[in-house]
């Protein structure tokens, strides 16, 4: 077998078109996951009655099951729920009109939310109690203290973990091909299906993923330096 260099280049170029889909899945799931995760983290930190148990159950169940399983549960389970509700309420909407990528968005957001809740929680726990007390001593309300004092520092403390999660979701987004979403990985399969040069095609995909990962690392590094400028402590 001989490596077809020209086809790697050709595949690479054709795969570029799938980058937006992959990035969209990644960023939608990280963004929604961040909101879900922050809510779950707050519920657990403040031990909100009943809800903090639900949040804990959510985190352990999602982290205890594979991301692909979440996708299948949503893909096969959601239509029942949607169609059942639509019928009950007499709406014309049917699950068949949900775009495939919608399942990926929802499922991966739920996945990311569980992992990000731990990222957010560890970030908030990294902020010393004294910061909150100082805010309270000035007469700030809890939401003011969280927004102005705790969250900015928690975000700075959790950035390394956060960039890890973004990269994890980028790579995890390949699973979307199982529900017929054409991301970079799926596109690689399609590109190779005419001449069976799968290795070349997937090699091109690997290069693109690597490039995207490096870009994310750089971006996070830059943000880290910027919002962590106040921090000249630590052991490193």
């Amino acid at each position: 077998m001989k490596l077809d260099g020209a086809f790697i280049v050709e595949a690479f170029v054709r795969l570029l078109g799938a980058i937006p889909t992959t990035l969209l899945i990644t960023f939608v799931s990280v963004a929604c996951g961040f909101v879900i995760g922050t809510a779950a983290a707050l519920l657990r930190i403040y031990r909100v009655p009943v809800l903090h148990r639900l949040a804990s159950a959510y985190v352990t169940f999602i982290r205890g099951t594979p991301m692909l399983t979440h996708l299948f549960l949503i893909y096969f389970g959601l239509p029942y729920v949607v169609d059942g509700l639509a019928e009950l309420l007499g709406l014309g909407f049917r699950s068949a009109s949900i775009p495939m990528i919608g399942f990926a968005y929802l499922s991966f957001s739920i996945t990311a939310g569980a992992y990000l809740s731990e990222v957010v929680r560890s970030g908030m726990l990294a902020v010393s109690r004294g910061q909150l007390e100082a805010a309270y001593s000035l007469g700030m309300t809890t939401p003011q203290a969280l927004r102005r004092i705790v969250f900015p520092q928690a975000l700075a403390a959790s950035l390394p973990n956060l960039s890890n999660s973004v990269i994890g979701m980028l790579h995890g987004s390949t699973l979307a091909f199982t529900v017929s979403v054409v991301d970079i990985n799926a596109k690689a399969q399609i590109v190779a299906s005419t001449n069976w040069k799968f290795f070349e095609s997937y090699l091109a995909a690997a290069l693109i993923y690597w490039g995207l990962t490096i870009a994310i690392e750089r971006m996070c590094g830059r943000i880290e330096r910027r919002i962590g400028a106040y921090n000249r402590g630590g052991v490193a």
């Binding site: 007390e133 309270y136 001593s137 900015p152």
Partner: peptide, 22 residues
């Protein structure tokens, strides 16, 4: 409690300056 806190202010043993602010 909020109103009470706004009548006094506190200086802490560990300073507790907001670390992310100048």
């Amino acid at each position: 409690v909020l109103a009470l806190r706004r009548k006094t202010s506190m200086v802490f043993q560990q300073y507790n300056l907001f670390r992310h602010k100048t």
